[in-house]
Design a protein around this nucleic acid. Structure first.
Lengths: 187, 187
DNA sequence: GCAACGTGAGAACGATCGTTCTCACTGGCG
DNA sequence: CGCCAGTGAGAACGATCGTTCTCACGTTGC
């Protein structure tokens, strides 16, 4: 466990700290001590804090979307049920200890105006998520606009859950999604 | 114009800087020079940066919600049309130059974990907004759950517009809101 | 055995930040 | 006129940050 890939150990520590406290609130020394590294080795793997931040966002994007896709595909229902399962996955995420909203929205608000790479990472993450929902919607036979609507509901649920610290936003969004799907897919 | 209330001049400068660049990215010296103040006078009105941040959020909350309420009430339609006018107002906001998402969500992501007053301000802002939509929904004869759904759509539209820099999220959300209202208020 | 090198641990450096202090100066009051 | 309370302008201070440097030490190759 401790002979892990040093890069992974650093990214693990960085992710927990950056996501939990905000990027600017975490100094490189905190990352160093949390990862059990020395300064030299830390900067060997990530030549600057910006590089570490970008790697953090990139890895989190991949893991987040993979976790969602695995959950949804294992839910094993119809495409319509898979679209609704997205909100179940959101509800589980919201209930995780330490949930603090979307890492990309948070980093965008904090650094988006000054660090273009952060803004680009957030845009990419949201585009991929929207594209994923669009794919599910297409499989369900729903028009693309419905996918956009569900994307907005999901985004809103993430924000609401973060602000109020209340995971029920996922169930609320799921309920609305069901109504929209029913309207788009008359049975 | 320049003999304005010093407090207002400071808050004007702070709002533009904090909202446009993030709170931590703006130093007190930048606020001082942008407001044409001296350090002494700046700290006379706001004894610490935290006080200034809280005042910034408080004033922005009041102005934001007042501007929305004025727009909606002047739209002069039925309660149902007023609910939809909320999304028109959002669209105008998104198209304003310098739009960078919700100031409260941004500050929550940046400072929410370390500054309870910021988290409380964000919660208050979102609760007031949700309550406002709930009032409109009640007047329209829609169930409270519909108000929650529209609130999630509005939140999602704000986030989407901020991430993609694209004001059309407001029209998308309005379209979804219409569907939800039609389902809740059969005519 | 020894020289060369890479590493650990942390001090050091320069920049920046929030906040306070200095100091010359101004205007009102006796 | 003389005094003093308050101000403007900005330097100063202590803390913190990102990043680099020092230096003693252990290891490796000859």
């Amino acid at each position: 466990m401790e002979h892990e890939d040093p890069r992974a150990r650093i990214l693990d520590a960085a992710e927990e700290l950056f996501y939990g406290q905000g990027i600017q609130a975490v100094g490189m020394d905190a990352v160093r001590s949390a990862s059990g590294m020395t300064m030299r080795r830390l900067y060997q793997h990530f030549p600057s804090k910006n590089d570490l931040v970008e790697a953090y966002l990139l890895r989190r994007d991949g893991r987040w979307r993979a976790s969602l896709a695995v959950y949804v595909s294992r839910s094993g229902g119809t495409p319509r049920e898979q679209l609704l399962a997205v909100f179940d996955w959101l509800g589980r995420w919201f209930a995780e200890p330490g949930f603090r909203g979307c890492a990309f929205v948070n980093s965008l608000g904090e650094l988006g105006a000054t660090t273009p790479a952060v803004a680009a990472a957030a845009r990419h993450h949201k585009e991929e998520f929207g594209g994923y929902l669009a794919g599910l919607a297409e499989a369900a036979g729903a028009p693309p606009t419905t996918a956009v609507h569900l994307t907005l509901l999901a985004e809103g649920a993430i924000t609401a859950a973060a602000v109020h610290g209340d995971p029920t936003a996922a169930a609320d969004a799921k309920q609305a999604a069901r109504i929209l799907l029913d309207a788009a897919l008359p049975r």
